[in-house]
Amino acid sequence: MGALNAFQILNGLTFAGLLFIVASGFTLIFGLLRIVNLAHGALYLSGGYVGYTVASLTGSFIAGIFGAMVVIAIIGFVLDQGLLRFVRGYELRQVLLTLGVAFILNDMALVIWGGDTFTVPVPEFLRGAVNLGGIFYPKYRLFVLALGIAVFILLWLLLNRTRLGALIRAGVDDAETVAAMGINIRLIFMITFMLGAALAGLGGTVGGAFLTLYPSADSEILVFSLAVVIIGGRGSLVGAAIGALMVGMLNSVGQVMFPELAYFVIFGPMALILAFRPLGLFGRAA
C-alpha cells in the first residue's frame, strides 16, 4: 500500500508539472489581456500534433518541442492580431470568439491528423524507469515534473527580474497607465499572447508523450486548466502552481479511489474555494 501511495503521489506531482506548463500560459493571457482564451486547449492539442509530426520526421524530441512552440506561437499571433483586435475591450465577445477559433482549430486538426491516437516519441535517455528507493517510476514523467519546475522558475525570473516582466506586471495592474507612460502596451500584449500560446504548444508536445493525443484531449486539458486558474486566480503564477498541484494531486487520488468519477473529485475543492474566494486564491478584482 505504501508503494502504491508513493506511486500515486508521484503521478499527481508529475501531472501537476504538465498542468502548470499549460495553465501558466492560460493565466498569463487571462491576467494581462483579460482574455479567457478558450482556444488554449485547442492550441495544446494542435501543438501536440505538430510536435508529434516534427519529432517523427526529424527523429528529435527537442526539435518537436521547438517546432510546436514556434508553430503555436505563430497561430497565437494570427489569433491575436488577425481576429481579437476587432473585438478589443469587449470581454465576452473576445471569449466567444476564441471559442469559435477552438472549434475551427480542432476540426482542422481532425482533417489533418485524423481521429487516431498518437504518442509523441520520447528520446532514448528518457525511456524506461528509475529506481526511487524501492519503487520503479517512469523517467519521462519525472522529466515532465522537472520541466514544470523549470518553466515556473524561468517565468518567475522573467516576470520579476526583467524589464519585460515588469511591464507585464504593470500591465496586469493598470494597462492604461502603462500605455500613458509611452510604452507600447499593444506590443507587450502581443508578446504575452505568443508566449502563452507557445507554452500551450510546449505542453501539447510534452503531454502528448504520456497522455497521448486524440480528438477530445483538448477539452480534457481545458477543464483542468480552467480548474487550475479558477482555484489559483487570474494572472497569478504562484496561484497557477498551487492550483496545478491541487488539481494534479486530487485527480491522481480520485483515479485511485473513484476511477470513474475522477473528474468529479476536482469539483469539490473548486466549489469550496469559490464559496470563500470567488476570484480564486490569488485573484484580485479587476
Partner: peptide, 23 residues
C-alpha cells in the same frame, strides 16, 4: 461577466467528463 462564463463552462465540462468516464 467573464468569470461567470468561465465557471459555468468548467461546471458543464465536469458533467461532460463524468458522462464520458462513468462507463
Amino acid at each position: 461577466g467573464v468569470y461567470f462564463l468561465l465557471l459555468t463552462l468548467a461546471l458543464g465540462m465536469i458533467v461532460w467528463g463524468v458522462c464520458l468516464r462513468w462507463t
